[in-house]
Design a protein around this nucleic acid. Structure first.
Lengths: 191, 191
DNA sequence: TGTACATCAGTGAACGCGCGTTCACTGATGTAC
DNA sequence: TGTACATCAGTGAACGCGCGTTCACTGATGTAC
């Protein structure tokens, strides 16, 4: 059957990236094998190294790809609604029961952040860039105090992590509600 | 050389638990092998199953052990200083550069939370209990709104995670400062 | 435009390796008399 | 209290397994003439 065309290789590349961004968030980096990723992308494991030099290489690319997806999601909503409303919508979506339950399409920082931070300087830049991009989305006023978005990001990240640790759905819902109150408080009283 | 006395077995058990609580936080659960733990505890891997039924069993025990350690730390400070002051000291310690850099003795939720949440119902109870215990430590007023401690816990957890993702020390320091401001804000304006 | 040939995307077997777990073994500990 | 024996904490070799990575191979694609 091989060889595929250049266009088809690019489509394969995208499928691998999508699969990795999904599985790394769902099951973690360490618990996801190259073979798992390639199977989900609809191929066998051997072809992987025509696309990436190593699993480490894929981790970095898939993480950035996942961040791109989340940011694009937010920016799509931004064009439709006003800036303030779109940020409120983003917070609501972030602190939702769906986000608690579906890690695979959710926040890459919540899903892979701790694991990424452990690899030391290898992914440091990618991690820091992701934090900056997502915090910027939450900034109340682009002219105002620049750290309110970062504090809000921390609160969202912490809340979803705690909600995912709850052992009942009711407890998770309560955690989300608490997070929503805290976010509003931060938005209203920052400087 | 074997067999050891009962008292010595108990000491071995403690050493395994200490080593696991350290290594799981430092390198993650998946990246830490039973052999690593036993080596750090000063033994060979074979003896492990005289103490725990499986690695999963150890994960739960070590996590709870780590939480016990952190809570004990806090309660020790509580007796010396006043209640309000000791909470402030706890927040300062949590949002310190040392905590960013030394995962192995730090917050078990920040280090293992995401990985623990993934294992589904297996560790759900241990995770939820840890959240409740640590949130209670942060409660401003035991009589007041019960969720302020939970919101504060989320903020601390998120802030340390973001600080660990920063690629320079200065950026981490800035993240910690932002977190401290947000915590004060939450404490002052909650209900 | 048609032909001859080099390229290379994807396959699937194979590699060395470390994992979690098991097991025969050891000899000091704990116990029964 | 002393002796005989069962227990069992810890050792280190061994197990089956899945990992990341390599490689010979295939045959359609892309290219040179």
């Amino acid at each position: 059957m091989p060889r595929m065309s250049k266009a088809e290789k690019q489509r394969s590349h995208s499928r691998i990236l999508d699969a990795a961004a999904l599985l790394f968030r769902e099951n973690g980096i360490g618990a996801t094998s190259v073979s798992d990723v390639m199977k989900t992308a609809g191929m066998t494991h051997g072809g992987f190294y025509r696309h990436f030099a190593s699993k480490e290489d894929l981790v970095e690319a898939a993480f950035s790809h996942a961040v791109d997806g989340v940011v694009a999601d937010m920016e799509r909503e931004s064009t439709v609604e006003g800036r303030k409303r779109s940020r409120q919508a983003y917070v609501s979506k972030y602190l939702s029961q769906e986000h608690v339950e579906d890690r695979s399409h959710g926040c890459p920082l919540a899903a892979m952040g701790a694991e990424l931070a452990r690899t030391g300087n290898a992914h440091a830049q990618a991690g820091a860039r992701a934090v900056a991009r997502m915090a910027a989305l939450l900034q109340n006023d682009p002219e105002g105090a620049p750290d309110q978005g970062l504090a809000e990001m921390a609160l969202l990240l912490g809340t979803i992590t705690l909600a995912r640790l709850a052992d009942t759905r009711d407890e998770a819902t309560q955690t989300l509600k608490t997070g929503q109150i805290a976010v509003r408080l931060l938005q209203d009283h920052w400087h």
